[in-house]
Amino acid sequence: MESAPTDRVWVWPNGRTLGLAAVLVAMCYAGASQSNGAAYLLCFILTSLAIVSLVHAWANLHGLGASVESIPPVFAGDDVSVPVVLTARKGGSHFGVLVSVSDGAPSAHEGAVVPESPSRLEVRFPSPARGHYRVIPLRITSDYPLGFFTARRRIKVAHEFYVYPTPHGDLPFPLTVAPTRQPRDGVRHEGDDFGGTRLWRPGESQRHIDWKAAARNPVLLTKQWTGETDEILYLDWATLPGLDTETRISQLARWVVTAERGFETYELRLPGKIVRASRGESHFHACLRALASFESPAAN
């Protein structure tokens, strides 16, 4: 967990402050050179307006609550989308609030945050390196009320999310396919109930390929019938020697994705971590999480 959140509102001048200063100097100069008391008065009123707007800018972000809702995991290279919830302090509203994840990143804009209903907005930012992250640094800014000053606030929200490794690599599936059970008679029970499909592997009869599905999907699938052997696909770190870590991780991620798409039962084996054979949504994510946090380069 990170250290204490730096949750203070700072008000900074911006480009428009300079513009205003130029106009104020012009007014003051006009007041002096034309001995124009009215110009002086205008100048002083605008000056103090700027000062007062600074206080208002500060107060606008003061007490604004920000939290993050569950962040869906992404593959490295995609945008992380962070659902942010802004809540107003009791009895106050906040206007023109801009939220971004870090400096320079695109931000999401929210008009007004009022006490009764928290506002939700989605901030997207390019995903960092794969890994398991626990803190989202949010940057909240607002130019309200006059725009001559920018109030800024940084909040570190404790929230975990995963950046999965990019699935990459075109090595064939490892051939370590171990049957869990021996087929009862060693013969396929063709003509029995259709039991779904799984990934077609080279060497299998092309008659079993689900050609209709092949038209929709780039991967070839083999039709299966119940009673067929239930096989486990072992996706093992050890079968990829001679490659660097990231390439291996990417290749494993590619296999996981392909295996899941092919309705396979698969098991992921990493040094020190084994995700037991299974399939389905939660298993898929468990594998990718394991890959994401394996020797993660992200220090977060």
Partner: peptide, 21 residues
């Protein structure tokens, strides 16, 4: 809600407790 958020209910619940002040 798993299909929607791809995260287990356990994580969702933990996050909820972490985020609501």
């Amino acid at each position: 809600d798993m299909e929607a958020t791809e995260t287990s209910g356990r994580t969702l619940a933990q996050n909820l407790l972490r985020e609501v002040p």
